[in-house]
Computed example of a mutant assay.
Amino acid sequence: MDKKTIEEAIKQAKENSPPRKFKQSYDLIINLKDLDLKKNEQQIDFFANVPSPTGKKKKIGALVDAGLKAEATKVCDIVISDDEFDRYAKDKKAAKKLAQEYDYFIAQANLMAKIAAAFGRALGPKGKMPNPKAGAVVPPKAQLQPVYDKLQKTVRVSAKTTPIIQLMVGTEDSKPEDIANNISSLYTQIIQKLPQEENNVRSVVLKLTMGKPVKLK
Rank of each mutant, 00 (worst) to 15 (best):
S185Y: 00
K160M: 12
A136T: 10
K193H: 13
K90N: 11
I190E: 04
S174K: 07
R202I: 01
K3H: 11
P51R: 03
N31F: 03
Q143N: 10
D173V: 01
L63W: 09
K58T: 13
N181H: 10
E8C: 04
A95W: 10
P130W: 07
L206M: 08
V205G: 03
A142W: 09
A94E: 14
I179Q: 11
T162Q: 14
D36G: 04
L28E: 09
Q100H: 12
L98K: 04
K57Q: 13
P19I: 06
R156Q: 14
I190M: 07
Y102V: 03
G55D: 09
L167A: 02
T5I: 14
K69G: 01
E101F: 00
Q42D: 06
K207A: 11
P130K: 06
E71R: 12
M1T: 08
P163T: 01
K212W: 13
I179G: 05
K23C: 13
D173G: 08
S81N: 13
P18M: 13
A13F: 07
P213G: 08
G61F: 06
A72I: 05
A180G: 01
I179D: 09
M112P: 03
P125S: 09
V75N: 01
E84K: 15
D86P: 02
N49S: 13
D45I: 00
L206S: 06
K39L: 14
K160E: 15
P195Y: 09
N182Y: 11
A136D: 12
V155A: 01
N182A: 05
K59D: 09
M168P: 04
V50L: 04
N40D: 05
D2F: 10
K56A: 11
I115A: 01
K193V: 01
D91L: 04
G120R: 04
I179W: 11
E172K: 03
A13E: 01
E71A: 13
P130S: 09
N199S: 15
K11W: 01
L28R: 12
K58P: 10
E101P: 00
K56L: 11
V138D: 05
K133E: 15
R121F: 12
E198S: 13
K133G: 00
P140Q: 05
I29W: 02
T209K: 09
D82H: 10
L194F: 07
T73W: 06
P19D: 12
A109S: 14
I164K: 14
N110G: 02
K4H: 11
E101R: 06
A13K: 02
K193W: 00
F119S: 00
K69N: 08
A109N: 15
S185P: 00
D83T: 06
F46H: 05
I165Q: 02
I165V: 11
T162A: 14
E7H: 10
D149F: 07
L186N: 09
Q192N: 15
Y187L: 14
A180S: 10
S52Y: 14
L206D: 04
E197M: 04
